[in-house]
Design a protein around this nucleic acid. Sequence first.
DNA 1: ATGTCACCTGGTAGGTGA
Length: 256
Amino acid sequence: MQIATWNVNSLGVRLPHLLDWLAAHPVDALVLQETKLTDDRFPHAELQAAGYRSWCFGQKTYNGVALLSRHEAVDIVHNIPGFDDEQARLIAGTVAGVRVVGGYFPNGQAPDSDKFVYKMRWLDALRHWLQDEIARHPSLVLLGDFNIAPEDRDVHDPVAWAGQIHCTPEERAQFQALQALSLVDAFRLFEQPPKSWSWWDYRNLAFRKNQGLRIDHILVHASLAPRVRACEIDKAPRKLERPSDHAPVVVTLDLG
DNA sequence: ATGTCACCTGGTAGGTGA
């Protein structure tokens, strides 16, 4: 089974890229972030023609998430239960016995901003809900755009980024707190190329210079970790014309 | 290089968010 995450930065713009990518990488399930579409505009028909059922949770202009699956998904959840939120940032569903939780974590803007306070509150709520959710569904995968670079090796220039948004001690502590729920960073289960990033700023020729961050992650519960066969970032879509600023990340599970 | 992209309002540009 393969599960992927991709921040598409507007599905309205990126649908052709997504359809091309799915044709080349027919993953079983995929979560999307920053769809930026209200649900009435979601391209269910085009995705169905590509072999995918889709569940969306969007809003106008900003945010928006979706779950795509070749098989039926059940027990769909929108946003973090018990956390009152006007922003569409999380969708979960159970696919073939795997609880798939896709999140578009708040960006946080700057460490001294109100948006950073919201990011911390959102992460606190996520962790508390996940604690219960893992007890109900141990075969859980948490994936998406975390907007956190967990370690210095996930940052092209750790000195310049020290203390900046995505790299603050508070955000990294939140990432570690998720790991403390027995969630394992699938990417780090394997030897990876150095300077592996999942996001490159549109500015400054950042992709050409490979100046990026690894902020898109796939965390699997420890009960699934022995089943993980691969975890890779696919840089190819970032090289296309009019790309998203993020690359997809794929995990391969051997569920026997 | 404060260097781009997407989307909004409201209009032939400017603001917001990332």
